[in-house]
Design a protein around this nucleic acid. Structure first.
Ligand code: MN
Ligand code: MN
Ligand code: ZN
Ligand code: ZN
Lengths: 141, 141
DNA sequence: AATTAAAATAAGAATCATTCTTGACTGTGG
DNA sequence: CCACAGTCAAGAATGATTCTTATTTTAATT
C-alpha cells in the first residue's frame, strides 16, 4: 500500500473520522460503496466492488471494515434468514422488504407518527432497544 | 430402532399424520419438545432434550425433522441475527421479543385489528407473503 | 528526518451451524 | 416372502464468518 505524502486522491472531501472511527482508505471505500449504491450488499458484494479501487484489499479486511463501521453506528447489519449478512447505511428507523420477483431489497418506513407500542401487545415495562422488521413478497405492476 | 407391533407407548393420542406429513416417532418427539416447552429452542437444544426419549437419535435427524415440520407448515423458524435458528410451534401471526436480561424469547402479538398496511409505507401493489419481526430489549420489573 | 507505539491490514487457517451424501432400516401392500 | 417408498444415522462437505499472526501504516515524538 504505497502512500502519498502530499495529497492523495483519497483525501477528497471525505471526513478523516466519523463517530470517533478513523476513516482509513479501506473504510472510506467500503462506506462509499454502501452509500452510492444502497442495494444492501453482502460483504462479498462489497469486496468485489471495492477491489476496483483497492486491488489488494482482502475479504477479511472488508469484514473488518464493516464490523468497525457497524460498531460505531455508521452502518447497520440487515439479516434475511440465515443468508449472508447485508449492510445498510440508512440509520433512520426502517424495515426491509425483499421483492422475491426481482431479488431487490427496499427500505420500508413506518407511516408518520406510528409507534410500535401503539401496535404491539408488549408486556408492561418493556423497553425495546432494537427492532428488526423483515418482509418478503412481490410488487404487482 | 426397535418397534412394537402391538401397542407402542408412542402411539398415544398423537395423530399419525399432520398436514400430510407422516409423524414418525422422531418427528413426534421433536414436535412434542417444541409444544411442551415453547422456549424457541435451537436444533441442538431439541437434540439434547429428545435424546432422553430416543437415545440413538442424531443431530442430523433432528435437523431433518425440524426441516420436514417447517416445510409442512407445522412449525416455524425464528431468526436472531446469525445465531442458530430457533423453532416455534405458534402458527399465529406474531413477532419475537428477546429479553437481553434473561435471555428468554417471548412471543409478541399485534394489538387486535392492526394491519401492516395501516402502519407501513409500502409501495402500491405490494403483496406481503411473510413477515418477521424481532425485538430486543429488557423488561423493567 | 528518524524513532516508536498503537492501530489497521492481508493472508490464510480455524470454526461451527447447517446441508449433503450414502447406505441401512422400516412398514405397507402385493 | 418380496419390492417399494419413505426415513433415518453417521459422517463428510459446505460456506459465511472469525481468528491468528506477521506486516504495514499511521500519528505522535524526538
Ligand atoms: Mn465494480
Ligand atoms: Mn432433558
Ligand atoms: Zn436499509
Ligand atoms: Zn414464537
Amino acid at each position: 500500500m504505497v502512500s502519498d505524502h502530499t495529497h492523495s486522491p483519497d483525501n477528497d472531501d471525505f471526513p478523516q473520522e466519523i463517530n470517533g472511527l478513523r476513516m482509513t482508505r479501506q473504510r472510506k471505500e467500503v462506506y462509499r460503496c454502501l452509500m452510492e449504491h444502497r442495494v444492501h450488499p453482502t460483504a462479498q458484494d462489497v469486496f468485489l466492488e471495492v477491489k476496483d479501487k483497492l486491488p489488494q484489499i482482502s475479504l477479511a479486511t472488508v469484514y473488518n471494515c464493516l464490523e468497525a463501521l457497524t460498531q460505531h453506528g455508521i452502518i447497520r447489519q440487515v439479516h434475511f434468514d440465515r443468508e449472508s449478512c447485508r449492510y445498510c447505511p440508512n440509520l433512520l428507523d426502517h424495515g426491509h422488504f425483499h421483492d422475491q420477483a426481482t431479488g431487490k431489497i427496499h427500505d420500508v418506513t413506518f407511516k408518520p407518527g406510528v409507534k410500535l407500542e401503539d401496535v404491539l401487545d408488549l408486556p408492561p415495562g418493556t423497553v425495546v432497544s432494537n427492532i428488526e422488521l423483515t418482509l418478503r413478497g412481490t410488487i404487482a405492476s
